[in-house]
Amino acid sequence: MSGLNYNHLRYFRAIAHAGSLTRAAGILNLSQSALSVQVKALETQLGHTLFDRVGRRMVLTEAGRIALDHADRAFAAGDQLLRTLAGRPGIDQQVLRVGALPTLSRNFQLNFVAPLVGRRDVELILISGTMRELLARLEAHEIDVVLSNLPVRQDSHSDLQSWRLSQQPVSLVAPPGVADADFRFPQSLADIPVLLPSHASDIRPAFDQMMERAGVVPIILAEVDDMAMLRLMARESEALTLVPPIVVTDELRDGSLIEVHRIAGLTEQFHAIIQRRRFPNPLLAALLPAAGPPAEAQLSP
Protein backbone atom coordinates (compact mmCIF):
# COMPACT_ATOMS: atom_id res chain seq x y z
CA MET A 1 0.00 0.00 0.00
CA SER A 2 1.27 3.44 -0.87
CA GLY A 3 1.44 6.12 1.81
CA LEU A 4 -1.77 7.67 3.02
CA ASN A 5 -2.88 10.74 1.08
CA TYR A 6 -3.51 13.37 3.76
CA ASN A 7 -5.47 15.57 1.37
CA HIS A 8 -7.97 12.73 1.03
CA LEU A 9 -8.01 12.38 4.80
CA ARG A 10 -8.56 16.10 5.29
CA TYR A 11 -11.52 16.15 2.89
CA PHE A 12 -13.00 13.04 4.51
CA ARG A 13 -12.65 14.65 7.94
CA ALA A 14 -14.40 17.81 6.77
CA ILE A 15 -17.37 15.82 5.44
CA ALA A 16 -17.57 13.71 8.59
CA HIS A 17 -17.72 16.76 10.84
CA ALA A 18 -20.07 18.67 8.56
CA GLY A 19 -22.43 15.71 8.14
CA SER A 20 -23.03 16.34 4.42
CA LEU A 21 -21.21 16.90 1.15
CA THR A 22 -23.05 20.19 0.63
CA ARG A 23 -21.90 21.78 3.89
CA ALA A 24 -18.35 20.44 3.56
CA ALA A 25 -18.11 21.73 -0.02
CA GLY A 26 -19.16 25.17 1.16
CA ILE A 27 -16.62 25.15 3.98
CA LEU A 28 -13.77 23.99 1.72
CA ASN A 29 -14.89 26.01 -1.32
CA LEU A 30 -14.83 22.89 -3.50
CA SER A 31 -17.43 21.20 -5.65
CA GLN A 32 -19.39 18.27 -4.24
CA SER A 33 -18.22 16.07 -7.09
CA ALA A 34 -14.56 16.85 -6.32
CA LEU A 35 -15.08 15.96 -2.67
CA SER A 36 -16.88 12.75 -3.60
CA VAL A 37 -13.94 11.69 -5.79
CA GLN A 38 -11.52 12.33 -2.92
CA VAL A 39 -13.53 10.22 -0.50
CA LYS A 40 -13.89 7.36 -2.97
CA ALA A 41 -10.12 7.39 -3.46
CA LEU A 42 -9.61 7.15 0.31
CA GLU A 43 -12.16 4.34 0.60
CA THR A 44 -10.38 2.45 -2.19
CA GLN A 45 -7.04 2.83 -0.44
CA LEU A 46 -8.39 1.77 2.94
CA GLY A 47 -10.53 -1.03 1.54
CA HIS A 48 -13.62 0.04 3.52
CA THR A 49 -16.72 2.12 2.93
CA LEU A 50 -16.53 5.19 5.19
CA PHE A 51 -20.01 6.64 4.76
CA ASP A 52 -23.58 5.44 4.34
CA ARG A 53 -25.91 7.90 2.61
CA VAL A 54 -29.11 8.49 4.59
CA GLY A 55 -31.16 10.99 2.61
CA ARG A 56 -28.85 13.97 2.22
CA ARG A 57 -26.79 13.04 5.25
CA MET A 58 -23.46 11.27 5.20
CA VAL A 59 -23.47 8.83 8.14
CA LEU A 60 -20.20 7.25 9.25
CA THR A 61 -19.84 3.49 9.07
CA GLU A 62 -17.88 1.65 11.76
CA ALA A 63 -14.73 1.95 9.63
CA GLY A 64 -15.59 5.62 9.06
CA ARG A 65 -15.83 6.32 12.78
CA ILE A 66 -12.43 4.71 13.34
CA ALA A 67 -10.96 6.62 10.40
CA LEU A 68 -12.34 9.87 11.81
CA ASP A 69 -10.82 9.20 15.23
CA HIS A 70 -7.44 8.61 13.59
CA ALA A 71 -7.86 11.62 11.32
CA ASP A 72 -8.68 13.85 14.28
CA ARG A 73 -5.60 12.56 16.11
CA ALA A 74 -3.43 12.98 13.01
CA PHE A 75 -4.40 16.60 12.54
CA ALA A 76 -4.23 17.18 16.29
CA ALA A 77 -0.66 15.85 16.10
CA GLY A 78 0.12 18.67 13.68
CA ASP A 79 -1.28 21.16 16.17
CA GLN A 80 0.72 19.46 18.90
CA LEU A 81 3.89 19.82 16.82
CA LEU A 82 3.30 23.56 16.54
CA ARG A 83 2.62 23.79 20.30
CA THR A 84 5.72 21.75 21.11
CA LEU A 85 8.01 23.89 18.98
CA ALA A 86 6.40 26.95 20.54
CA GLY A 87 7.17 25.57 24.02
CA ARG A 88 3.57 24.49 24.75
CA PRO A 89 3.52 20.69 24.34
CA GLY A 90 0.28 18.73 24.48
CA ILE A 91 -0.61 15.06 24.89
CA ASP A 92 -1.95 12.68 22.23
CA GLN A 93 -5.20 11.19 23.55
CA GLN A 94 -7.47 8.23 22.85
CA VAL A 95 -11.19 8.84 23.21
CA LEU A 96 -13.87 6.70 24.88
CA ARG A 97 -17.51 7.77 24.55
CA VAL A 98 -19.78 6.43 27.29
CA GLY A 99 -23.57 6.81 27.26
CA ALA A 100 -25.66 6.34 30.41
CA LEU A 101 -29.29 6.52 31.41
CA PRO A 102 -30.24 9.32 33.82
CA THR A 103 -31.73 6.67 36.13
CA LEU A 104 -28.28 5.16 36.65
CA SER A 105 -26.24 5.80 39.78
CA ARG A 106 -23.50 8.38 39.24
CA ASN A 107 -21.33 6.41 41.68
CA PHE A 108 -21.72 3.31 39.53
CA GLN A 109 -20.81 5.28 36.39
CA LEU A 110 -17.71 6.60 38.12
CA ASN A 111 -16.75 3.11 39.29
CA PHE A 112 -17.07 1.83 35.73
CA VAL A 113 -14.73 4.41 34.19
CA ALA A 114 -12.41 4.55 37.23
CA PRO A 115 -9.58 2.57 35.55
CA LEU A 116 -9.30 5.33 32.94
CA VAL A 117 -9.90 8.37 35.15
CA GLY A 118 -6.76 10.45 35.53
CA ARG A 119 -5.00 9.00 32.49
CA ARG A 120 -3.72 11.99 30.57
CA ASP A 121 -3.67 9.96 27.36
CA VAL A 122 -7.43 9.26 27.57
CA GLU A 123 -10.33 11.63 26.98
CA LEU A 124 -13.62 10.43 28.47
CA ILE A 125 -16.83 11.74 26.93
CA LEU A 126 -19.88 11.00 29.12
CA ILE A 127 -23.31 11.34 27.52
CA SER A 128 -26.77 11.07 29.08
CA GLY A 129 -29.94 10.15 27.21
CA THR A 130 -32.87 7.79 26.86
CA MET A 131 -32.25 4.16 26.02
CA ARG A 132 -33.59 4.69 22.48
CA GLU A 133 -31.33 7.69 21.89
CA LEU A 134 -28.23 6.00 23.28
CA LEU A 135 -28.72 2.73 21.41
CA ALA A 136 -29.25 4.68 18.17
CA ARG A 137 -25.97 6.51 18.76
CA LEU A 138 -24.25 3.23 19.65
CA GLU A 139 -25.40 1.67 16.38
CA ALA A 140 -24.29 4.81 14.52
CA HIS A 141 -20.80 4.39 16.07
CA GLU A 142 -21.13 7.73 17.83
CA ILE A 143 -20.58 6.18 21.27
CA ASP A 144 -18.69 3.07 22.33
CA VAL A 145 -20.71 1.69 25.26
CA VAL A 146 -24.06 2.30 26.95
CA LEU A 147 -24.47 1.87 30.71
CA SER A 148 -27.94 0.77 31.74
CA ASN A 149 -29.87 -0.89 34.55
CA LEU A 150 -31.62 -3.02 31.92
CA PRO A 151 -30.06 -5.45 29.42
CA VAL A 152 -30.67 -4.94 25.75
CA ARG A 153 -33.13 -7.25 24.06
CA GLN A 154 -31.22 -9.70 21.90
CA ASP A 155 -32.55 -10.90 18.55
CA SER A 156 -31.12 -12.44 15.42
CA HIS A 157 -30.94 -9.08 13.64
CA SER A 158 -29.11 -7.21 16.40
CA ASP A 159 -25.38 -6.76 16.86
CA LEU A 160 -25.88 -5.46 20.40
CA GLN A 161 -24.82 -7.42 23.43
CA SER A 162 -25.11 -6.87 27.18
CA TRP A 163 -22.48 -7.49 29.84
CA ARG A 164 -23.83 -7.72 33.38
CA LEU A 165 -21.34 -5.74 35.41
CA SER A 166 -22.86 -5.76 38.87
CA GLN A 167 -25.92 -6.55 40.96
CA GLN A 168 -26.64 -4.22 43.87
CA PRO A 169 -29.03 -4.53 46.81
CA VAL A 170 -31.84 -1.99 47.24
CA SER A 171 -32.64 -0.30 50.53
CA LEU A 172 -34.81 2.29 52.19
CA VAL A 173 -32.58 5.09 53.47
CA ALA A 174 -33.40 8.25 55.38
CA PRO A 175 -31.88 11.02 57.48
CA PRO A 176 -31.45 9.98 61.14
CA GLY A 177 -34.68 10.17 63.11
CA VAL A 178 -37.13 9.66 60.25
CA ALA A 179 -37.77 6.01 61.17
CA ASP A 180 -37.56 4.59 64.68
CA ALA A 181 -36.52 1.18 65.95
CA ASP A 182 -40.08 -0.12 65.53
CA PHE A 183 -39.93 0.25 61.73
CA ARG A 184 -41.47 -2.74 59.98
CA PHE A 185 -41.32 -3.38 56.25
CA PRO A 186 -43.60 -2.94 54.43
CA GLN A 187 -46.27 -2.04 57.01
CA SER A 188 -44.58 1.17 58.21
CA LEU A 189 -44.73 2.63 54.70
CA ALA A 190 -48.42 3.28 55.26
CA ASP A 191 -47.37 5.98 57.78
CA ILE A 192 -43.90 7.23 56.71
CA PRO A 193 -43.66 9.09 53.38
CA VAL A 194 -41.34 7.80 50.71
CA LEU A 195 -39.39 9.07 47.70
CA LEU A 196 -39.32 6.60 44.80
CA PRO A 197 -37.52 6.16 41.50
CA SER A 198 -39.82 6.61 38.52
CA HIS A 199 -41.25 3.68 36.60
CA ALA A 200 -38.31 4.03 34.19
CA SER A 201 -36.22 2.30 36.85
CA ASP A 202 -36.31 -1.51 36.87
CA ILE A 203 -36.62 -1.60 40.68
CA ARG A 204 -39.86 0.40 40.77
CA PRO A 205 -42.23 -2.24 39.30
CA ALA A 206 -40.88 -4.88 41.68
CA PHE A 207 -41.35 -2.53 44.65
CA ASP A 208 -44.92 -1.72 43.56
CA GLN A 209 -45.71 -5.43 43.35
CA MET A 210 -44.40 -5.92 46.90
CA MET A 211 -46.68 -3.15 48.15
CA GLU A 212 -49.68 -4.55 46.30
CA ARG A 213 -49.14 -8.07 47.68
CA ALA A 214 -48.84 -6.67 51.22
CA GLY A 215 -51.94 -4.48 50.80
CA VAL A 216 -49.92 -1.36 51.68
CA VAL A 217 -50.54 2.00 49.98
CA PRO A 218 -47.35 4.04 50.47
CA ILE A 219 -47.37 7.81 50.93
CA ILE A 220 -45.40 8.91 47.86
CA LEU A 221 -43.89 12.38 48.12
CA ALA A 222 -42.05 12.29 44.79
CA GLU A 223 -41.14 10.04 41.86
CA VAL A 224 -37.76 10.91 40.36
CA ASP A 225 -36.14 9.56 37.20
CA ASP A 226 -32.71 11.08 37.85
CA MET A 227 -30.66 9.31 40.50
CA ALA A 228 -28.58 12.40 41.21
CA MET A 229 -31.75 14.35 42.02
CA LEU A 230 -33.13 11.46 44.08
CA ARG A 231 -29.90 11.48 46.07
CA LEU A 232 -30.24 15.21 46.78
CA MET A 233 -33.88 14.85 47.80
CA ALA A 234 -33.04 11.92 50.09
CA ARG A 235 -30.67 14.19 52.03
CA GLU A 236 -33.10 17.09 52.30
CA SER A 237 -36.48 15.36 52.82
CA GLU A 238 -37.92 13.97 56.04
CA ALA A 239 -38.83 10.79 54.20
CA LEU A 240 -37.61 7.35 53.31
CA THR A 241 -35.97 6.90 49.91
CA LEU A 242 -35.92 3.72 47.85
CA VAL A 243 -32.45 3.47 46.35
CA PRO A 244 -29.48 1.15 45.85
CA PRO A 245 -26.99 2.08 48.62
CA ILE A 246 -24.26 2.63 45.99
CA VAL A 247 -26.16 5.77 44.96
CA VAL A 248 -25.73 7.33 48.42
CA THR A 249 -22.35 5.88 49.39
CA ASP A 250 -20.95 9.20 50.63
CA GLU A 251 -24.06 10.06 52.66
CA LEU A 252 -24.10 6.66 54.36
CA ARG A 253 -20.43 7.09 55.16
CA ASP A 254 -20.78 10.55 56.70
CA GLY A 255 -24.00 9.70 58.55
CA SER A 256 -26.28 12.21 56.83
CA LEU A 257 -28.30 9.17 55.72
CA ILE A 258 -28.75 5.79 57.38
CA GLU A 259 -29.88 2.49 55.93
CA VAL A 260 -33.27 1.87 57.54
CA HIS A 261 -34.07 -1.41 55.81
CA ARG A 262 -32.45 -3.55 53.12
CA ILE A 263 -35.21 -5.12 51.04
CA ALA A 264 -34.74 -8.86 50.58
CA GLY A 265 -35.30 -10.08 47.05
CA LEU A 266 -35.04 -6.63 45.47
CA THR A 267 -31.88 -5.83 43.50
CA GLU A 268 -30.76 -3.57 40.71
CA GLN A 269 -28.56 -4.86 37.92
CA PHE A 270 -26.05 -2.80 36.00
CA HIS A 271 -25.19 -3.59 32.39
CA ALA A 272 -22.75 -2.41 29.77
CA ILE A 273 -24.19 -2.60 26.26
CA ILE A 274 -21.80 -2.72 23.34
CA GLN A 275 -22.04 -3.44 19.65
CA ARG A 276 -20.17 -6.26 17.95
CA ARG A 277 -17.58 -4.48 15.84
CA ARG A 278 -14.67 -5.48 13.69
CA PHE A 279 -12.67 -2.70 15.30
CA PRO A 280 -13.79 -2.32 18.94
CA ASN A 281 -12.45 0.59 20.94
CA PRO A 282 -9.32 -0.83 22.65
CA LEU A 283 -10.02 1.19 25.80
CA LEU A 284 -13.02 -1.03 26.54
CA ALA A 285 -10.64 -3.90 27.26
CA ALA A 286 -9.64 -2.14 30.49
CA LEU A 287 -13.27 -1.94 31.63
CA LEU A 288 -15.08 -5.13 30.57
CA PRO A 289 -12.88 -8.16 31.38
CA ALA A 290 -13.64 -8.10 35.10
CA ALA A 291 -17.33 -8.48 34.30
CA GLY A 292 -16.86 -11.85 32.61
CA PRO A 293 -18.42 -12.78 29.27
CA PRO A 294 -21.92 -11.64 28.33
CA ALA A 295 -24.74 -13.85 29.64
CA GLU A 296 -25.57 -16.75 27.36
CA ALA A 297 -29.21 -15.73 27.29
CA GLN A 298 -28.26 -12.35 25.93
CA LEU A 299 -25.54 -13.26 23.48
CA SER A 300 -24.81 -15.99 20.99
CA PRO A 301 -21.13 -16.25 20.02
Rank of each mutant, 00 (worst) to 15 (best):
Leu46Thr: 12
Leu288Arg: 03
Leu124Lys: 10
Leu299Cys: 01
Ala86Gly: 11
Arg253Val: 06
Leu85Val: 12
Pro280Trp: 09
Leu196Phe: 00
Arg253Pro: 01
Ile91Gln: 12
Pro293Ala: 15
Ala222Tyr: 01
Val113Tyr: 04
Ala86Ser: 13
Leu257Gln: 07
Ala71Lys: 02
Leu189Glu: 09
Ala297Tyr: 12
Arg276Tyr: 08
Asp121Glu: 13
Leu252Trp: 06
Phe112Lys: 06
Pro176Met: 01
Phe207Val: 03
Glu259Pro: 03
Arg97Gly: 04
Glu223Asp: 09
Pro245His: 00
Leu135Val: 14
Ser162Met: 13
Ala174Cys: 04
Arg56Tyr: 10
Ala71Leu: 02
Val248Met: 06
Ala206Gly: 09
Ile220Asn: 11
Asp159Pro: 04
Gln275Phe: 02
Leu252Ile: 03
Arg137Val: 03
Ile15Cys: 02
Arg132Phe: 14
Pro294Ala: 06
Gln167Ala: 15
Ser237His: 00
Thr22Asn: 03
Val146Ala: 03
Val95Phe: 10
Arg23Phe: 08
Ala290Pro: 00
Leu221Glu: 10
Ala181Cys: 02
His141Met: 00
Gln209Arg: 12
Pro245Leu: 00
Thr249Ala: 15
Gly265Lys: 06
Ala67Phe: 06
Gln45Arg: 12
Leu189Asp: 04
Leu160Asn: 02
Ala174Thr: 03
Leu124Thr: 11
Arg119Trp: 07
Ser237Gln: 00
Thr249Met: 04
Thr49Arg: 12
Arg83Thr: 05
Asp155Ile: 05
Arg262His: 04
Gly129Ser: 06
Leu242Ile: 04
Gly26Glu: 14
His8Asn: 15
Phe270Cys: 09
Leu299Met: 01
Ser31Leu: 08
Asp159Cys: 07
Ser36Asp: 13
Arg13His: 08
Gln80Asn: 14
Ala214Arg: 06
Leu110Trp: 03
Trp163Glu: 10
Gln209Tyr: 09
Asp180His: 02
Asn107Gly: 14
Gln154His: 15
Arg120Tyr: 06
Asp144Cys: 03
Leu135Tyr: 07
Leu266Gly: 07
Arg184Phe: 07
Ile125Trp: 02
Ala100Cys: 05
Val178Ile: 07
Pro197Tyr: 04
Asn5Gly: 09
Ala295Cys: 01
Glu139Trp: 04
Ala86Pro: 01
His8Ile: 05
Met227Ile: 05
Ile274Asn: 03
Ser237Thr: 00
Arg164Gly: 09
Met58His: 09
Asp225Phe: 13
Glu212Arg: 12
Phe112Val: 05
His48Thr: 02
Ala174Met: 01
Leu196Asn: 00
Ile258Gly: 06
Leu232His: 15
Gln109Pro: 05
Leu150His: 14
Ser158Lys: 04
Leu30Cys: 08
Val54Pro: 00
Asp92Met: 14
His141Gly: 07
Gly177Lys: 07
Gln109Gly: 13
Ile125Cys: 06
Val95Asn: 11
Leu104Phe: 13
Arg231Trp: 08
Leu230Arg: 06
Ile192Ala: 02
Ser198Gly: 15
Glu139Asn: 12
Glu268Gly: 02
Pro245Thr: 01
Asp79Tyr: 01
Ala179Pro: 07
Ala76Gln: 11
Arg137Trp: 11
Asn29Asp: 15
Leu28Arg: 08
Ala295Thr: 01
Ser2Asn: 14
Ser36Ile: 11
Leu116Pro: 00
Val260Arg: 05
Gly19Glu: 00
Pro176Leu: 01
